[in-house]
């Protein structure tokens, strides 16, 4: 009996899972290759209202409009680079989530390497410090040290109960 109830409950849950099959996007392009290209491009386009989301992640009206434009232009056979250029001519580089590599962004893209360079210089100096040889004691210094150590030993011995 118990097994039967378990089986019934399990089958109910399994059939619920079937119901929850992802709905087909009514806006999707009929050609799956084009749809995939459009979706990939949407991930690179900034939703200008929400700023740090892509238009693929956003529910804003502007993001919907831009998604539709990306799909339309993809369907017309435009390349991702052409569609990006179309958007940039209206919204500037800001519309791209990944800034382009040009004279204004050399420092931005180069900064990790500059940081690595600084780290390298720092390590070089550390290495040199560690390697610097300590000059051995001369005879006088050795005798002085021995005397000091002996004093220490005596003092410790004196304190002992």
């Amino acid at each position: 009996m118990k097994q039967f109830i378990t089986a019934v409950i399990a089958s109910i849950f399994l059939s619920l899972a079937l119901l929850a099959e992802p709905p087909v996007n009514p806006d999707a392009l009929p050609d799956p290759v084009q749809e995939a290209a459009a979706r990939a491009l949407m991930k690179d386009i900034r939703c200008l209202v929400c700023q740090n989301q892509s238009i693929e992640d956003s529910d804003a009206d502007l993001a919907k409009d831009l998604r539709q434009i990306v799909r339309e232009q993809t369907a017309e056979g435009k390349s991702p680079a052409e569609i990006k250029a179309w958007l940039v001519s209206r919204y500037g580089d800001w519309v791209l989530l990944e800034p382009p590599f040009d004279e204004r962004t050399y420092f931005l893209w180069g900064s990790p390497f500059i940081l690595l360079g600084f780290l390298g210089i720092w390590f070089m100096f550390r290495e040199r410090d560690a390697k610097s040889v300590i000059a051995p004691l001369n005879e006088d210094e050795r005798l002085e040290l021995d005397a000091l150590l002996q004093q220490d030993d005596l003092a410790e011995g004196g304190d002992a109960p």
């Binding site: 200008l48 209202v49 009206d61 502007l62 409009d65 831009l66 434009i69 209206r90 919204y91």
Partner: peptide, 13 residues
């Protein structure tokens, strides 16, 4: 009504 002219002008809101 469709906001297409606004997009041509680079309007974000």
């Amino acid at each position: 009504g469709q906001g297409r002219t606004a997009i041509d002008w680079g309007v974000s809101g």
